[in-house]
């Protein structure tokens, strides 16, 4: 574990991209992660087994994508 060169030409001391500190990542992961998961939820599950909005409009609109993306639909 002490090599200084690699096939990709990147040494451990200088990763080709700076490491993102966890403290910087956390707020993004919480807020962004939540919003992005919410988007996945609306495509994959809303108005199926669970519903945040009444009706079937969202379910029906994304219906074909839901089936083809592998989510349980109906």
């Amino acid at each position: 574990m002490s090599q200084t060169t690699t096939a990709t030409g990147v040494s451990p001391e200088s990763p080709s991209l700076p490491v993102v500190p966890l403290g910087e990542l956390l707020p993004w992961a919480l807020l962004g992660g939540l919003l992005l998961m919410l988007a996945l939820y609306f495509v994959g599950a809303e108005q199926g087994a669970t519903a945040m909005f009444s009706g079937t409009g969202i379910h029906e609109f994304v219906h074909d994508g839901r089936h083809l993306l592998g989510f349980p639909c109906h």
Binding site: L36, A39, L40, F61, G65, L69
Partner: peptide, 17 residues
């Protein structure tokens, strides 16, 4: 449009995550 929206939103959100 429904299919485009479903696949597009899914894939874009997945890209963000």
């Amino acid at each position: 449009w429904g299919l485009l929206t479903g696949v597009g939103v899914y894939s874009t959100a997945l890209g963000g995550l």
